[in-house]
Design a protein around this nucleic acid. Structure first.
Length: 302
DNA sequence: TTCCAGGGGTAGA
DNA sequence: TCTACCCATGGA
């Protein structure tokens, strides 16, 4: 099997999902908007394999760059996570349809956030977004893949597995991947997973309530309220808003005349009416505003 | 030189 | 529970 087709849910929009947030700019992903092709590298049975992902009609078409045999079940599971294919958005879309501002979001098929192919990858990437500029995040993730990830014959690196990271020291990661103080968190996370102390599959049990999952994620090294809310969003749970400098700036500018005195509680309350879709409502506004900026020639930095 | 970015951990109140 | 401080890094 060199090529796999995965049926897509109704209303799925490939470009809107890939460009849903900055993840498509992080290794091992590479996105060509002109050809609408997402390229990545995944590891199957210890071997790195280059993958090309396109949208073909009502399906996602994944093609292996080599003649490597791909385990269809595993590949399917990873793609379902990456594109949030199991997240039901009907309720969110019904709410969007009631608002003139959100009808454009609905029409564009926005609502699924691009994720890593594993929970581990997303946790590490979220840690790499904290308290740094976006360009530094891109560099850290790129170095992590380059220095620790497994490599294809053509020289492309996959995102490292916990085992690949835990065999390095925290000091080595800090020096070679420029992770700063985050190196200790990422190393502790990887080592905990390898030793069995941290059980990510158990943690991702869909039977948990969102509050339970939020508390579980907060136990992870380097994951606080922001990171836990971000991880929940990657599970398709948008009850909590990940408050960061970007959120504060955007909401203050849009709703509070850029008033620096408005606190987080008031900023978050702006989305209270969205119930379990609070964070996605914010993401949608941010995404929609970036489309407007694009069409008016304003450059985006991410 | 100083500030700050898609924050988190910790000690002390 | 809340606040203050520290944590590496690199671009502006």
């Amino acid at each position: 099997m060199r090529k796999l087709l995965i049926p897509l849910p109704p209303g799925f929009n490939f470009i809107a999902t890939v460009e849903s947030h900055g993840w498509y700019r992080l290794a091992p992903l590479s996105w060509d908007r002109n050809t609408q092709t997402l390229v990545t590298t995944e590891v199957f049975e210890q071997a790195a394999v280059g993958l090309t992902i396109r949208c073909s009609g009502e399906s996602l078409a994944i093609t292996a760059a080599s003649d490597a045999k791909l385990p269809s079940r595993e590949l399917r599971d990873r793609m379902r996570r990456m594109f949030q294919l199991d997240v039901g958005l009907e309720d969110f879309h019904r709410r969007c349809a009631k608002s003139a501002r959100y009808r454009r979001v609905l029409a564009a098929g926005y609502g699924r956030l691009l994720c890593g192919s594993t929970l581990f990858e997303d946790i590490v990437k979220i840690i790499a977004t904290t308290n740094v500029t976006w360009s530094q995040t891109v560099r850290m993730v790129s170095l992590l893949a380059e220095k620790c990830g497994r490599k294809t014959d053509s020289g492309h690196h996959a995102f490292p597995a916990p085992e690949d990271i835990s065999r390095r020291s925290a000091g080595w990661l800090q020096t070679h991947c420029r992770l700063g103080y985050r190196a200790a968190f990422i190393h502790q996370l990887a080592r905990g997973i390898v030793s069995g102390e941290i059980d990510l599959p158990g943690m991702a049990d869909p039977g948990q309530t969102t509050e339970e999952l939020f508390r579980s994620y907060r136990q992870l090294p380097g994951i606080g309220p922001y990171g836990a809310a971000h991880l929940l969003a990657m599970d398709g749970r948008h009850d909590f808003i990940a408050v960061d400098t970007e959120f504060r700036r955007f909401v203050r500018d849009r709703y509070f005349a850029s008033d620096e005195n408005i606190g987080d509680i008031e900023l978050v309350s702006r989305y209270q009416k969205w119930g379990r879709w609070k964070y996605l409502a914010y993401w949608s506004e941010l995404w929609e505003s970036s489309r407007v900026a694009d069409s008016s020639g304003v450059a985006k930095d991410q």
